[in-house]
Amino acid sequence: MRHLIVIPAFNEEEALPRTVERLQGLPAGYEILIVNDGSADRTRDVAAALASTSRLPLHVAHLPVNCGIGVAVQTGYRFAVADGGYQNVIQFDADGQHDADFIKSLVERCEQEQLDLCVGSRFIRDFGPGSRSTFARRIGIRFFAWLIGFMSGVRVTDPTSGFRCLGPRAWRRFADSYPEDFPEPESLFWCARNGLRVGELPVRMFERQGGVSSIRKLKAAYYMVKVSLAILFDRIRRTEVARVAPQPTV
C-alpha cells in the first residue's frame, strides 16, 4: 500500500533538507512530494538535489508563482489523483515543526478506525515546552475548535494543525476543491459537516527551524475573520457527501 507525504514549501531552503532527512526512516510504501510554491530562494534547487539522494521516492512539483498554502497542498492531492495508486495522503510542514515519528501512527489510526481525516493534535498530550504554540495562538485555536464544534457537533482540539492524514474520500474531494489560504480549519469543518469520519491523534511538534510562518502578526486578525466567515459560509452550503456512521470520539 502506498502513501504520499505532501510537503508544501515556500522559501524553505534552510529547513527542507533536515525535514526530508527525518522522513527517511519511514518504511517502503511511503513517497514524498515537495510542492515548491513559487519560492524566491533556492528551494527549487534544494528540492531537486534532495530528489536525487532520497531513499524514499521523492517527487517535486514547482508552482511557477506563489499561490498560497491551500493551492500548494491541493497540488499534492491532484498529484495523488493523477497517480491513482495512493491510499492515504499525509500533509507535513517543510519547516521542521512536525515530528516524522508520528506519521505511521496517523496512518495506522486512519486505517484502524477507517477515518477520512486524522489530525495530529498538540493539545491532547503535553510533550514539553515549546510544543504547543504561543498563548495568543492558543486562544485563536480554541476559538476555532469551539466554532467547529458548535457548527458541526464534532469536537476537535487542534483545528489549525497542518499535520494530518487524509483517506481517499477526503483527498479526492479536496483535489477538486480546497480552501485557498489558511485551509486547515475550513477543510476540517467541511469533513465534519459532510459526515466524513474525523479523528485526532496526539503528536509532538517542534519550534520552526527556518523559513517564514504563513501567519504573521499583521495577518492574524485577517486570519481570524476570514476563517470564521469561511466556516459560516460553508455552514449555509448544501452538504455534498452522504452521512456515514456516527463520529468516533476523539
Partner: peptide, 17 residues
C-alpha cells in the same frame, strides 16, 4: 489560473520523470 498553474506543475514533474 490556479487550475492551470497546478496542471503545469504536475505536467512538468511528469515530463521530468
Amino acid at each position: 489560473n490556479v487550475r492551470l498553474t497546478q496542471q503545469m506543475a504536475l505536467l512538468e514533474e511528469r515530463l521530468r520523470r
